[in-house]
Design a protein around this nucleic acid. Structure first.
Length: 511
RNA sequence: GGCGCCGUAGCCAAGUGGUAAGGCAGAGGUCUGCAAAACCUCGAUUCGUCGGUUCGAUUCCGACCGGCGCCUCCA
């Protein structure tokens, strides 16, 4: 598993439409740029499916011995952020800041490793302006009749290679952009959009030598990635550029044109794209209204481990349909992994040495590596993990044990823990709730001591407000069914001292 | 219309030119005071349909049916 770089990792490269060995420019370093969220609103879990596949890619690269430099952009200026800010009656960054914060919270909830650098577009204006200037200087960009700056795709012969544009025909009657007649070629795209009233209203405008305006959508990724890899590594070529499949055209196509048009060097050696998350066969999106955010799941108490497992059980280049059944199945899988983990931890404490479990551990790590090196085949790796769980459980069931649990625990934690991160979250007690209960129990005990029974009853009532009617109903039902009353009924809230006294340290089990 | 993707057991989902991983659900069993957990056993003679290539196809080719995505600011 600690494969020395260069590892045997192969990934599908959209540029060639083939699975190819990863070939970083200067191994063991890998520069990884992943297209991040547009912070006009909360990201939905379809967005996060892409970020989760990238998280696995990142972790696997690191596990394989690569020294990864991971950059993710935050699109905080584009049509949608401007429009949303306008509707909210706010300045652009005032509107986007809370969503950026929310994105980070969601990222942490889903246990996605933070990128090394996050690049908000608004903080890279000088770099973007410099890039446009350079493109104008090199004659591949021009100022249109409407005052915006466009990229001239006919000056860039390889335009369309990523999306195989040469094989396409434009749809008859396809919509014609309003800026159509300002451009030399209808397919030229905007690098810099001339300031308009809406952008001015929310403060989304910057002064530039070629006119007051704001960046086109694609510009930021080129400017920021080139700036960051130049600063960190002194290069102008990314090793991997990743994103959702919808970004292939036009976004990534245009990024290539802008970047290579300016540097004359290959922009990215490997392009990887993740498929969509669907809902009943249709892509999850804000527009369709069929979305669910990460915070929705968190509020429902869904363990992030289940979400991760759910996504990792499908290959990143296959669409996944998000259903309640699939989520429930994943939750159950996570629970089983957790049970197994606890069991292995118990045995691992006292069992070193080798034995069948040691062999199973090696198999697990080998199978995982083989699967992930083959175009990040997470489903196959997850299958190997469950194979391991079953085989190891069988071994642990045997009365005559031969040892090796410690090794098995190590392997299991490396794969299910550090790599996939799909072990159940230890359910942290809610401190506020615990305090509330403790306070009332204490208050009641104190009141009883001082024989203030009215106060005692009041404190106790708060604890049982909700349960009392059901207790009463239970007695009624008991009588209806002519069940003889027990001699003693013992409500748990009345036995706190006894329970506290008897709670054995480390005692596990269910109610 | 162009480009691309998909159709595998009840649900989800890997995979391969040589006879179908894994997960969840279900049934039976072992263990257990009863449970729970765990383990064992069981399920696609079959991989949308129809043809073709082949000794052999779920896997390659063609047609068709069904679903989906992109085609200028969608992860």
């Amino acid at each position: 598993m600690t494969a020395p770089a260069p590892s045997k990792l192969s990934l599908f490269n959209t540029l060639t439409r083939r699975v190819e060995p990863l070939a970083p420019l200067a191994p063991p370093r890998v520069t990884l740029y992943t297209c991040g969220p547009t912070v006009w609103n909360y990201a939905h879990i379809g967005n996060f499916r892409t970020f989760l596949f990238e998280d696995l890619l990142r972790r696997w690269l690191e596990r394989s011995g690569y020294d990864v430099f991971h950059i993710m952009n935050l699109t905080d200026v584009d049509d949608r952020t401007i429009k949303a800010a306008r509707q909210a009656g706010k300045q652009l960054t005032d509107h986007t800041a809370p969503f950026t914060k929310a994105f980070f919270e969601d990222r942490d909830y889903l246990r996605i490793k933070p990128a090394h650098v996050y690049t908000p577009a608004t903080e890279y204006m000088p770099q973007m302006i410099a890039l446009v200037s350079k493109l104008i200087e090199r004659g591949v960009a021009y100022k249109g009749e409407d005052g915006s700056v466009y990229f001239a795709i006919n000056k860039f012969p390889t335009y369309g290679r990523l999306s195989q544009l040469d094989k396409r025909e434009i749809k008859v009657g396809a919509r014609v952009a309003s800026d159509e007649y300002a451009k030399g070629d209808p397919s030229d795209f905007a690098l810099w959009k001339k300031a308009d009233a809406e952008a001015e209203a929310v403060g989304a405008v910057w002064d530039a030598p070629f006119g007051r305006g704001r960046p086109g959508w694609h510009l930021e990724c080129s400017a920021m990635s080139l700036d960051e890899i130049r600063k960190c590594c002194g290069v102008q070529t990314l090793d991997i550029h990743a994103g959702g499949i919808d970004l292939i055209f036009p976004h990534h196509e245009n990024e290539i044109a802008q970047s290579e048009g300016a540097t004359g060097q290959q922009f990215s050696r490997h392009w990887v794209h993740g498929e969509f998350l669907n809902v009943r066969g249709t892509k999850m999106s804000k527009r369709h209204g069929n979305f669910l955010t990460a915070r929705d799941l968190r509020e429902q108490g869904v363990d992030a481990a289940a979400v991760r497992l759910l996504f990792f059980q499908t290959h990143y280049r296959q669409p996944v349909d998000f259903t309640d059944d699939a989520l429930e199945a994943a939750k159950e899988g996570v629970r089983r992994l957790g049970e197994f983990h606890a069991r292995l931890t118990e045995n691992g404490k006292r069992e070193t040495g080798n034995g069948p479990l040691g062999e199973l551990s090696r198999k697990l790590e080998n199978d995982t590596a083989a699967a992930l090196n083959d175009d990040l085949n997470a489903p196959r790796a997850v299958a190997a993990l469950f194979d391991f769980v079953r085989a190891a459980n069988r071994e642990l069931d045997r009365p005559q044990r031969t040892g090796g649990a410690a090794a098995a625990l190590g392997a299991f934690e490396r794969v299910a823990g550090a790599l996939f991160d799909i072990l159940p979250t230890e359910r942290a007690a809610d401190p506020a709730l615990e305090r509330w209960v403790a306070e009332r129990i204490a208050a009641r005990a104190q009141a009883r001591k001082s024989k203030d029974f009215k106060a005692a009853r009041q404190a106790g009532k708060q604890l049982t407000d909700h349960t009392a009617p059901f207790t009463k109903a239970f007695f009624e039902d008991r009588d209806y069914l002519r069940i003889k009353p027990a001699h003693v009924y013992t409500p748990a809230t009345e036995y706190m001292p006894q329970m506290i006294a008897r709670r054995a340290p480390g005692a596990r089990g269910r109610d």
